[in-house]
Write a protein that binds this DNA or RNA. Structure first.
Lengths: 116, 116
DNA sequence: CCTTGACTTAGAGTTAGCTATAACTGTTAG
DNA sequence: CTAACAGTTATAGCTAACTCTAAGTCAAGG
């Protein structure tokens, strides 16, 4: 039942234990279980959640917004619309970002090509 | 000859005057001309340089590294190899980043598709 | 001449996101 | 039994990249 200690979770998701505790303190990981000695026990769905947090963060969403998304998620079906709108607008942002990165890639390639 | 005041340059490159002065102070913009009253006059090539700085920064290069690149650039042909290596490795980084963004995009799309 | 406004400088303050420290506690190997 | 170890909390410190403030300068319009 107790799947991961903090150091195992840390290794699994490639974030330091500091960061995991920090995320929890910031409200991004509500409901992480603790054992009788007060030590964190990460479950499979915590790991999954962290994976999605990394996805959102890696695409430029702030921790504050991720927390907001999480709280909408916690409120279930009644907040589905709002939550989905958030994801849709984030998706648009990612698409734009990819486009920008491609433009910048071309600029760097051009600079390399110059050979000066 | 005096092409842009700081506020005109600011509008042109979409960075605040604060940021332009900060970049200069940090050594990213050496040789910006000043008029008799000590006010900055940005030339066309300063604007171009800022454009490339934005490109490097927008693809995740730190100001410190950008400054380093700039100083290699200033040393001309003898540092060409080093400078180009920097750009090549940065290019690889951008390619990887685009790949990651695409992966994350898929994750977000999948989450949207779930409709839960 | 006087005010206005855009500029100057040095340096302080802010924000995000960690990262580390100190002091402590419970588990385990010898 | 005890020493080492892996965890805990609260809180302080750090870095990057701005962002702003204060006090002052200068050129131009009325």
């Amino acid at each position: 039942m107790s799947l991961y200690t903090i150091s195992q979770a840390s290794a699994e998701v490639d974030l330091t234990p500091y960061t995991l505790r920090y995320y929890e303190k910031e409200g991004l990981l509500p409901g992480v279980k603790k054992d009788s000695a007060g030590r964190r026990n990460y479950q499979a769905d915590d790991i999954q959640r962290i994976g999605f947090i990394k996805c959102l963060k890696g695409t430029g969403m702030s921790l504050k917004q991720i927390k907001e998304y999480g709280s909408l998620y916690a409120q279930g079906k009644k907040k589905f619309e709002e939550r989905n709108a958030m994801l849709e607008s984030h998706k648009a942002k990612i698409l734009l970002e990819i486009k920008t990165q491609k433009k910048y890639l071309k600029m760097v390639e051009a600079k390399i090509q110059m050979k000066i």
